[in-house]
C-alpha cells in the first residue's frame, strides 16, 4: 500500500515506503532516462543519467538509488539536468571506441537510443580512443571492451541472479575493465555457466552473441526471475 506522497514534476505521486524516486516516477508514467539501471538488479548509481533535482538539496541526486520521502519535491526535467545528461552521454561516447556503424547492436543499443533521445548529434569532447581488446574465447559469446560503458549490469546480473560472480571490475578509473574471474579469458572461466544473462543485460554491443547477425537482448525478464527466486520456485 502506498504510504507516502511526494511531488514529481508538479504532480502528486504516491509511493510505497522503500521505493526509489525512479520507481515512484515510473509507476506514474513519468519517464526518467536511465542507463546503468536495470529493474531486478541492485541499483548502482554509477552512470548518473537518471539524476533529478530535489528541492532543498544543493546537488542533483540519482533517482535510481534515492528513496522517495514524504513531501519530497522532485524535478525530473530541467535545463540543468538536460545539459548534465547530455554531457554525461557525450563523455561516455568519447571514452571508448563506439563505432556504431560496425556494431552488432547498431539500432538496438540503449546508449545510442539515449543519445538520440537527448538530441546528441555530435560529441564536443576529444575522443580518447583507448586501445581496448575483444575477448572471443567463449564458445558462444564475445566481449568487446571498445563498446563497454562500465555500467556493471553484467557484473550484477551474474552475481545477484545467476550467482556465479564470473564478472567483476579490474583496474580503476580510465583503466577499469570488466574482467572474468581473475582477468582470465572468458572461455577459460571456471565459474561461467554460459547462461547468457550478462549478454541479455548489456545495454550496448559490448557483450554479444557470436555468429548472430543481431544479438537479441531483453528477452529475459529479470524482474520475473527475481520474483521466482524469492518464491523459491523455478
Amino acid at each position: 500500500m502506498p504510504r507516502l506522497t511526494l511531488t514529481i514534476d508538479g504532480r502528486a505521486v504516491r509511493a510505497g515506503r522503500g521505493q526509489t524516486i525512479l520507481q515512484a516516477a515510473r509507476s506514474h508514467g513519468i519517464a526518467i532516462p536511465t542507463l546503468c539501471n536495470l529493474e531486478g538488479l541492485t541499483p548502482l548509481g554509477g552512470c548518473r543519467v537518471c539524476i533529478v533535482e530535489v528541492e532543498g538539496r544543493p546537488r542533483p541526486v540519482p533517482s535510481c538509488t534515492t528513496r522517495a520521502e514524504q513531501g519530497m519535491v522532485v524535478t525530473t526535467d530541467s535545463e540543468r539536468l538536460a545539459a548534465a545528461r547530455r554531457m554525461i552521454v557525450e563523455l561516455l561516447l568519447a571514452e571508448r571506441n563506439h563505432t556504431c556503424a560496425v556494431c552488432v547492436m547498431n539500432g538496438n543499443c540503449e546508449l545510442q537510443t539515449l543519445a538520440t533521445y537527448l538530441g546528441i548529434d555530435h560529441v564536443r569532447y576529444g575522443f580518447i580512443s583507448p586501445l581496448a581488446s575483444v575477448d572471443i574465447s567463449h564458445e558462444r559469446f564475445g566481449m568487446d571492451h571498445n563498446r563497454c560503458i562500465l555500467c556493471r549490469r553484467c557484473v550484477r546480473v551474474c552475481n545477484e541472479i545467476e550467482g556465479a560472480h564470473t564478472w567483476d571490475v579490474g583496474g580503476r578509473g580510465a583503466a577499469s575493465r570488466i574482467i572474468s574471474d581473475l582477468a582470465e579469458p572468458w572461455g577459460e572461466s571456471a565459474t561461467c555457466t554460459g547462461c547468457g544473462k550478462c549478454v541479455q543485460a548489456c545495454p550496448t554491443g559490448a557483450l554479444f552473441e557470436k555468429g548472430a547477425v543481431a544479438t537479441r537482448k531483453g528477452t529475459i525478464c529479470l524482474e520475473r526471475l527475481v520474483e521466482w527466486r524469492k518464491r523459491g520456485e523455478p
Binding site: 548518473r48 554525461i88 563523455l91 571514452e95 571490475v169 580503476r172
Partner: peptide, 9 residues
C-alpha cells in the same frame, strides 16, 4: 575508482 561516469570520464 571508475564507478561513476562524470568522475571517470
Amino acid at each position: 575508482c571508475g564507478k561513476c561516469a562524470p568522475c571517470r570520464a
